[in-house]
Design a binder for these strands. Structure first.
Lengths: 213, 213
DNA sequence: AAATATATTGACCACAGTGGTCGACATGAT
DNA sequence: ATCATGTCGACCACTGTGGTCAATATATTT
């Protein structure tokens, strides 16, 4: 009965979610330890099994929760009427960061279960993930104005290169922020830096002023 | 006494190295299991502790081994007289792949111990790693002809973007090849694809014919 | 062929950590 | 004063741990 869990005060709920996300992200389902989770979440062992009947139920709850969150706080916010690919990505950055600030291990958690245990998931969750994945694809790549790109490069390859670049920047950022307290810090300089990179990408992959037809 | 181990026939040695690299890469030192290692390497439990006195000694041996290997089979082969950054990277790809083909978990292993346990390493290994890191930096970035890059972008940022792009491509490749037997396959098409990406990077970040002074 | 040295195994050990339970107790509502 | 709801952590049976070692197979020397 996870409605018990859902009615917890927000701070405690968040502590538990965070602890569990981190533990499962780092160790996978099998080797994740409920002992470490309760310790990190600062609750008694009993409570975890009071909210969730067992480890597996908690795990599935987390998957469901994370998929819902990505849908509502990320994908649904992406504005597909913006036809400039890089500009569209630029706008998604803020959504991503606010998710990360609230739940730093959520993306790692998703990455982990997708990589290693996606296939063994109950059908319901697997399908939910597939739907989300499809939606993500359309939200990112549909209705893009290809004519912005230079004519002398393969647009598909440019897409990939841009995506990898952004992923690389995100990862470097994560490393840099590792010991920072995410809560009270000034994100603006980071966004400025990020925008600078996007600008370089635009200059490089897009037609320049003179070339636009 | 790891000279015992070193005198093993190559095939058995490789089996043990592979198994151990993978186990430590996936689980870190603490949670790596010697039982799983011997099982995967298909040797009796006793042998592992016959070659290496204990788990830690094996771990340190692997670190030392991997650092030596990266030095000799990768860094020392990089030709710094090639002043074209992308061209230089292009040439390193073959070294990297041949290391990966022989020992698919080595880079993951290095990535893992650097990320989580570098600081607690014995001084000797820590210094060895630092030296390697420095050398890597010079081998990749020294004596690069900046004038190849377009004037209207920040070269430092272009460096980063290119590096991230290549890393992204490598990771995607790893995913794709996951279920392939690395041994007997044709790498040529992959290199062709890789070179295509590099070409896009060149067109985008380098000056075009007309602009060269 | 006998004796010795080296290589190899896996059952075994004490122990640490596992997921999950449950009686004791605190808190707040009725 | 009673009762429902929360909360805890000692406890349990059990699994897996790093490491040992007597037994044995194999190779080398005499």
């Amino acid at each position: 009965m996870s409605s018990l869990f859902e009615n917890l005060d927000e701070e405690k709920k968040q502590r538990i979610l965070n602890a569990a996300f981190q533990e499962f992200a780092e160790h996978g389902f099998e080797k994740a330890s409920t002992n470490r989770i309760v310790k990190k979440a600062k609750i008694g062992k009993g409570m975890l099994f009071y909210y969730f009947n067992n480890k597996r139920e908690l795990y599935y709850y987390l998957i469901d929760f994370s998929l819902d969150l990505v849908l509502k706080d990320y994908l649904e916010r992406i504005d597909t009427s913006e036809t400039d690919f890089i500009e569209r990505l630029k706008r998604t950055a803020k959504f991503k960061l606010s998710i990360f600030a609230e739940n730093p291990h959520l993306f790692n958690f998703i990455g982990a279960f997708v990589l290693v245990e996606k296939e063994e998931l109950p059908l319901e969750l697997k399908e939910k993930y597939e739907r989300l994945y499809q939606l993500g694809h359309t939200k990112l790549y549909d209705n893009i104005d290809y004519s912005l790109f230079r004519d002398d490069i393969d647009v598909k390859k440019a897409f990939k290169l841009i995506t990898w670049s952004i992923y690389g920047y995100e990862e470097e950022l994560k490393q840099r922020l590792k010991r920072q307290s995410l809560a009270e810090m000034d994100y603006e300089p980071l966004f400025e830096e990020f925008y600078d990179y996007l600008e370089v990408l635009k200059i490089s992959f897009y037609k320049q002023e003179g070339e636009k037809k």
